[in-house]
Design a protein around this nucleic acid. Structure first.
Length: 293
DNA sequence: GTATTGAGACTACTTACTTCA
DNA sequence: CGTGAAGTAAGTAGTCTCAAT
């Protein structure tokens, strides 16, 4: 296949059709080929060669799982700078219309690629797009491309801008995403991924903070429990050896001086172990009476 | 009005890679 | 210099919502 862009760049691609995704080594321009299933539709009979910020070549069929009913071929080569032209050219490899029985993974990949590209090319159907990569600037980060998988390292200004955007919105609408991607000279998909990962990091951090908080609460409650157990032991000890004031008439002891609760003269049948009504705790001069109430 | 379906956005988890101690 | 841990960009699978039919 051969495509000419309006800016004079000639891109010659040798393609072989198969029913499985095509993965090849990065080409000499540093571009990569990835699977892609999304087709963008434009004026009948043309394939667009369109500017893109990052040099990568996407090539694949819609059918990742051997479904021969869907033989859309999508060729996407990204990498032009903003100043490059656009060319529409027919892709003769398109065989049939858009199917809907793609696997989830394929469908998602299709959607992802399609969503980011569809804002540049509005139509969507049976035509493949070719975007050539010629800009030296845009090829520079292909040094990070290893084994066909891109490991981009965002620059500090890019990260700063993304962080700034994240402060305002933790998620982006398509327009904001597109705008940010344009500003950062990244693909919208990269912006989207960054926000997804950023949200995940935020959530993880929040979870860690919550864990620490709960841990402290737990420790505090453990201490409190320990203190109360100790107090209970002391009260039990007092109960087993009542001091002189326990021998006073019951009527004089029936009211708690702190909570003014009237004590029950009946034998204590304590269902709730924390119920203190039957305990003469208010008589213990060494503990705070209100703590038990 | 209801059921179905596909797209898109999202989360959770994982992988691959880079950086740094 | 080699190595493991930490950080992170990107891939994958699944869920949910919503609009179109």
């Amino acid at each position: 296949m051969e495509f000419d862009s309006v800016c004079g760049t000639k891109l010659v691609l040798g393609l072989s059709l198969s029913s499985s995704p095509v993965m090849v080594e990065p080409n000499t321009m540093g571009s990569t080929i990835q699977t892609c299933t999304r087709l963008d539709q434009f004026d009948k009979g043309v394939t667009v060669i369109k500017p893109c910020f990052e040099p990568s070549l996407t090539l694949g069929l819609s059918n990742n799982h051997g479904d021969t009913n869907h033989k859309k071929t999508h060729i996407l080569v990204t990498g032009l700078g903003d100043d490059h032209g656009v060319l529409y050219q027919q892709d003769s490899t398109v065989i049939s219309g858009g199917g809907s029985s793609l696997s989830n993974m394929t469908a998602k990949r299709e959607r992802e690629v399609g969503s980011e590209e569809s804002e540049r090319v509005s139509n969507d159907n049976n035509y493949s797009r070719v975007v050539s990569a010629t800009s030296v600037d845009d090829v520079e980060d292909d040094d990070d491309c290893v084994n066909g998988r891109k490991k981009l390292r965002l620059t500090k200004p890019q990260s700063a801008l993304l962080e700034e955007a994240f402060k305002h919105h933790s998620s982006l609408n398509p327009k904001q995403k597109q705008e940010l991607a344009r500003e950062l000279k990244l693909r919208p998909r990269q912006v989207e991924v960054w926000f997804q990962n950023r949200r995940a990091r935020t959530k993880l951090k929040q979870t860690e903070m919550n864990f620490e908080h709960l841990k402290k609460c737990c420790e505090k409650l453990t201490d409190e429990n320990r203190r109360l157990q100790k107090e209970l032991q002391e009260l039990k000890a007092l109960k087993s050896s009542p001091p002189f004031y326990m021998q006073l008439p019951a009527a004089t002891l029936s009211m708690c001086p702190s909570c003014e609760r009237i004590g029950d003269a009946k034998p204590a049948v304590v269902k709730n172990p924390f119920t203190m009504a039957a305990k003469p705790h208010f008589l213990n001069p060494f503990t705070n009476p209100s703590a038990a109430c």
